[in-house]
Simulated scan of single mutants.
Amino acid sequence: MTFGDVSMTFSPYSLNGHQFRGFGFDLSPKGSWRLSAMLGRLSKAVEQHSEVNNVLPSYKKMGYGVKLNFEKAKYMLGLNLFQAKDNLNSFPKSLDSLMISPQENLVIGAEVRIRPLKGLELSSELATSALTRDSRDSTPKPRHTNFLGWLSKANHTTSFYTAFKMQMNYT
């Protein structure tokens, strides 16, 4: 269990070594289950400075995530969920004049690893993400676009992405 400035990795497609300020833990009790979770500030608010031109303002971004694995000698099954959201109240005035809007991201991933023969390991990972470029937009997006549309507050600025990886290792 860790408090303060922490980095954790759930998946290359969600939380991948990103440093945050908050709370995180990895539990590995006796048996097959593994649980990891995090909650915290992913980035602090950055204000615009008239004398410094190379600093781009940004909203404060908060996030949480959880990863659950079930592992046996011959296989492993894993699920992870990660969500990050910009805090609209980071600044007293809007950043619209700079074309910067508050964003939201939801990622759900699944992982499978099997060892059918001695020395052979097959693994695959699937992750899908909903990225909303302006969380204030109230124009609804058709819900049938992606199953994450049912879980997230998808709007007209939401895009859906999918990543899939398969690999085979033999030692």
Results as ranks from 00 to 15, higher is better:
164 F>T: 08
92 P>M: 03
15 L>E: 07
86 D>M: 01
129 S>Y: 02
107 V>D: 02
20 F>D: 01
125 E>R: 13
39 L>W: 06
133 R>P: 06
116 P>N: 04
33 W>M: 15
131 L>D: 08
9 T>A: 12
19 Q>L: 08
37 A>F: 03
139 T>M: 13
129 S>N: 10
35 L>H: 04
125 E>Y: 04
104 E>S: 09
133 R>N: 09
132 T>F: 03
135 S>A: 12
37 A>N: 03
159 S>H: 05
36 S>H: 02
125 E>T: 10
77 L>A: 07
62 M>P: 00
171 T>F: 15
85 K>M: 02
26 D>E: 14
150 W>K: 15
99 M>W: 07
48 Q>M: 10
103 Q>E: 14
137 D>Q: 11
64 Y>D: 04
117 L>H: 09
160 F>S: 01
85 K>A: 01
85 K>E: 02
131 L>E: 06
61 K>L: 01
49 H>Y: 13
145 T>H: 15
62 M>R: 07
41 R>T: 01
73 A>G: 04
56 L>H: 11
80 N>C: 06
129 S>H: 05
17 G>P: 02
98 L>P: 03
169 N>S: 15
38 M>A: 04
51 E>D: 14
163 A>T: 03
130 A>S: 14
152 S>M: 09
23 F>H: 05
124 S>T: 11
81 L>A: 12
164 F>R: 06
139 T>S: 12
50 S>R: 07
5 D>Q: 11
101 S>H: 15
7 S>P: 03
130 A>R: 04
40 G>K: 00
39 L>V: 07
160 F>V: 02
167 Q>I: 11
142 P>N: 14
19 Q>D: 12
160 F>I: 02
140 P>T: 03
170 Y>I: 14
4 G>C: 03
135 S>F: 07
90 S>V: 01
71 E>V: 11
148 L>M: 10
78 G>S: 06
10 F>E: 06
93 K>R: 13
117 L>F: 13
16 N>Q: 07
90 S>C: 00
109 G>E: 07
35 L>A: 09
131 L>A: 08
93 K>L: 14
134 D>W: 01
27 L>K: 12
151 L>G: 06
77 L>V: 15
56 L>K: 14
122 L>C: 05
50 S>M: 08
45 A>N: 00
20 F>M: 02
45 A>M: 00
30 K>D: 13
50 S>K: 10
5 D>H: 11
2 T>N: 14
8 M>L: 13
92 P>L: 06
148 L>G: 04
48 Q>I: 08
53 N>G: 12
43 S>I: 01
60 K>F: 00
149 G>D: 13
139 T>A: 15
155 N>D: 02
53 N>V: 14
12 P>H: 02
26 D>M: 12
129 S>A: 10
38 M>Q: 06
